[in-house]
Design a protein around this nucleic acid. Structure first.
Lengths: 331, 331
DNA sequence: GTTACCTGAGTAAACGATTAACTAATCAGT
DNA sequence: ACTGATTAGTTAATCGTTTACTCAGGTAAC
């Protein structure tokens, strides 16, 4: 690899001059010198050594994102939104899959700090208190899963979440407005805020309309397809149910499969609402009514907020985004 | 951030000694000194500055992956496989979405080279000749989409592909063995090797069994859901078709949707085989028979080969992986 | 004619780590 | 007592940039 110093030698100038020209700080450089340098740079195919530059400049223009799993459609959309926004701002993204494990999350945070990333975007593992993964001085955005952070938190922390309570309230109200009388919920039993809020919204909606919340209309396990499948099989064993709120779209996919096996048709026998609006939901049979999380926007906002933190700008360090009901044929 | 030099000062030793202890090259360091240093490191929460280390060591333990889009299930699986394998080998992954554009691909290659990645794993844009994106001296693995590379290629290039011809041959033969007589294909019309091979395998299978290849049984557009939908609507307009080979699973998803709308049932009226076996295929209605690409293995092999290239080890620089027919209910 | 500013460029330190080469002390063996 | 090997460290150069500071000559103003 050819270096700046070598370019300087070829052009018979100092390395300072070459640096200035390359970085456009060439107010006090003659046109002749500038051209001479640029020609050589071009001819030799010189590429800046970003590592040396980073060492001197104390930034890397790189951020890390830690998510449970890119294969999960929700997170792959998130990753894409983040990468797109980052690229536009001149940042590059290191991808880390935590598998929802605190241990892996901690390990990745350490690696990212060694790599001197300028910031981290982190979706914490489902069960995780913030103190156990505190990212030190690196600016960090906590995304998607709310976590208790002390108010006098010394680090640079931003938080971006979705209003889960309102989302599941919307979903349940929608089912009610479609005439459902016996509405069940299948969701995750993890004790973190988003999960609890999604259950809370469901319960609030029922209570507000004068219904009782019945604990044998709840099936709580995990945010995956199997849970949806098992949930329907278990809930519909002996009870009648005409409405189903699923904690996320994967659960809804499993639920649809189980309902088909039970020869129940959607939406005539049972109406279903999901949560997330992953890319696939509109191609299910029937296309799934769901609560859309503004995933791409989350990515953009996360980058925006993170860069503000990196640059020590004053910003609102908590954003709560609203969801949107997307009505399709499952209700 | 505390530096190695500061640790050295606190411990009253030279920075060389601290470096040796931290990196385990402490054969000639007394137990007392070692303990003293390690205690201070622990207490101060010292973290190595990886940038400085990289500058000196001339490696970054970072690789870049350039794929069209992580939101595409096939590539998110690939990304995951790569990241997993990389992490095990002590490498970190920079994620780049090229959107299938040559311009973005070129830009990312340049950025990755500035960041001094140790290697690149690249899925070239669909229409792309290799010379236009030549990654210079950075070791590179070309993944999934075969590209013509000159035999005297000076760069360190490895190639890993799937045997597409054999895969689509298997798919088509499977449809024939299930009794299909009128088999159509919906796939992509891009003029790259994988696309052409998938069509080729389909044609070969038909010819080998004595059927004629009929050009109005072909619908070629893109590898997406819409193509599948449009393809079925167009192919079934006036022709009878009892078997359908889809160039990938996304196409199959669209095709299933269109067939439902036409009140044709799968597999009794039309049998369908896809290609890729994305995570979702088994949850479709009906679960999709498909040609599984060994995606995770591709990721592992890619990392393995790339690290060999990085370390100048002698390896086979071309791997062609075989596919597997996964029979589900759509046939 | 002195002062002050502008222009065009060079010098050298700094960023934070690694490591080859060196020193100095101890020890075993003859 | 001398040699050679082993042990326990230090010194200082180096990786490839950026940039504060310096310098010299030209020009404009008073």
């Amino acid at each position: 690899m050819i270096t700046l110093k070598e370019i300087a030698k070829m052009a018979n100038v100092s390395s300072a001059t070459v640096s200035k020209v390359i970085n456009g700080k060439d107010k006090y450089i003659s046109d002749a010198t500038r051209k001479k340098i640029l020609d050589i740079v071009e001819k030799e195919g010189y590429i800046t050594n970003g590592i040396a530059k980073s060492l001197k400049m104390k930034n890397t223009k790189t951020i890390g994102i830690i998510i449970p799993d890119v294969m999960n459609l929700f997170f792959s959309e998130l990753a894409r939104g983040i990468e797109d926004a980052a690229e536009k701002k001149g940042y590059t993204v290191i991808l880390c899959n935590s598998e929802n494990k605190v241990s892996k999350t901690k390990k990745y945070i350490e690696i990212l700090q060694e790599k001197m990333v300028d910031g981290i975007i982190l979706t914490p593992p489902e069960k995780c208190d913030f103190n156990s993964i505190r990212p030190g001085r690196t600016p960090t955005i906590l995304l998607d899963r709310d976590v208790d952070v002390e108010t006098n938190e010394p680090s640079k922390i931003g938080r971006i979440f979705v209003n889960n309570t309102a989302g599941s309230y919307k979903a349940t109200s929608h089912l009610l407005s479609k005439g459902c009388k016996e509405i069940a919920i299948i969701s995750s039993d993890t004790q973190n805020k988003p999960s609890l809020e999604r259950i809370q919204g469901y319960e609030n909606a029922l209570r507000d309309k004068g219904y009782v919340v019945n604990s044998d209309r709840k099936y709580l396990e995990s945010y995956n397809i199997e849970t949806g499948y098992n949930g329907v099989k278990s809930l519909l064993m002996d009870k009648r149910i005409d409405g189903l709120f699923c904690g996320n779209d994967l659960i809804a996919i499993g639920a649809l499969k189980a309902l088909r096996e039970l020869n129940l048709s959607v939406p005539s026998d049972v109406k279903i609402v999901g949560f997330d609006d992953i890319l696939l939901s509109r191609y299910l049979d029937p296309p799934l009514t769901t609560i859309k999380q503004p995933v791409y926007v989350m990515g953009e906002k996360a980058i925006e907020m993170l860069i503000a933190l990196i640059n020590d700008e004053q910003i609102d360090d908590l954003i709560i985004l609203e969801t949107l009901l997307i009505e399709r044929d499952s209700t």
